[in-house]
Write a protein that binds this DNA or RNA. Structure first.
Length: 270
DNA sequence: AAAAGCCCCTGGATGC
DNA sequence: TGCATCCAGGGGCTTT
């Protein structure tokens, strides 16, 4: 489910309310992708300093150590004054003096991992290989072009890989390539500087706009307030196979790259 | 080093 | 109605 916009929207929806809270207890449901990495009881008494985001990870800073949280494919967070009884897909609860942070994740591709710091080997393994933040100052056209020149894979898959630029998932990769007028199958190394620059701008534009719209709610995404997102309503290509292109009228195509669906317009993307 | 496949898991939609 | 099949916002790990 969640790409950078959904994760960022989630972060903003509870960061302010949980900051300063004291952890009372933690509860685990079924196993997630990785073990928590500490006894849940050991979290009691720690204070939440704030919530950051790195790529699609949320970093919940504690006064000692931090929690790395990933929503995987089907995860969503809620933050409520009091938690209803846990349902079958509620796999992590953090009870605090200011409310309960709950992770609901039917498919359990998500994770909550405790690490002592960002230099912790586990944190390094998960965060160390990530590319630059697309909405940060390090995402810059010339460096982006240089990084793409080293990659022979199709540009769609390079965007998804996350080691050049983070946070672009399956929806926004298709959308950004449409905006930039680039075929998803184009080898990354063959993009000229002007085209890479267009793609750079398109990635920033589509992600920023999606954050603005509260993310995309295709099935069940909602932020920690329970509010849905609306970006899916303005998707140009994603999940629109067989429908007319909103720009040129040609039929939107669906193809498969690396076992993931890609949507594009033959008329608008060269 | 980089690319390509393979999984992890559950639920909803579709088709017979 | 029931059952099989396909598909889904991710990404680490293993193999080429």
């Amino acid at each position: 489910m969640p790409e950078l916009p959904e994760v960022e929207v989630t972060r903003r929806s509870f960061a302010g309310r949980i900051a300063g809270a004291r952890v009372l207890a933690a509860r685990l449901g079924k196993p997630l992708r990785w073990p928590l990495g500490c006894d849940p009881q050991a979290l009691a008494g720690r204070q939440v300093q704030g919530v950051r985001r790195r790529g699609k990870y949320l970093l919940i800073d504690l006064d000692a150590g931090l929690l790395l949280l990933h929503l995987g494919m089907s995860g969503s967070l809620s933050f409520m004054p009091e938690a209803p009884e846990a349902g079958p897909h509620d796999h992590f609860d953090l009870f605090t003096t200011q409310g309960v942070l709950r992770l609901n994740d039917p498919r359990r591709f998500g994770a909550v991992v405790y690490v002592t710091g960002e230099d912790d080997p586990v944190a390094q393994k998960l965060l160390g290989g990530l590319g630059v933040e697309p909405l940060g100052p390090d995402f810059e056209p010339v460096a982006f072009h240089a990084a793409l020149r080293r990659r022979q894979a199709p540009i769609k898959q390079v965007l998804l890989a996350g080691d050049v630029v983070v946070g672009v998932g399956n929806i926004y990769a298709s959308e950004a390539l449409f905006l930039a007028g680039i075929r998803p199958t184009t080898r990354a190394s063959r993009l000229s500087l002007p085209r890479a620059t267009r793609l750079h701008a398109a990635v920033q534009e589509v992600l920023a706009r999606a954050v603005d719209k509260g993310g995309s709610t295709l099935r069940d995404f909602s932020n920690a307030w329970g509010e849905a997102g609306y970006f899916q309503l303005e998707a140009m290509v994603y999940d629109r196979a067989g429908q007319p292109c909103r720009r040129c009228g040609q039929t939107i195509r669906r193809m498969v790259q690396g076992q993931r669906a890609t949507y594009f317009c033959r008329g608008c993307q060269v």
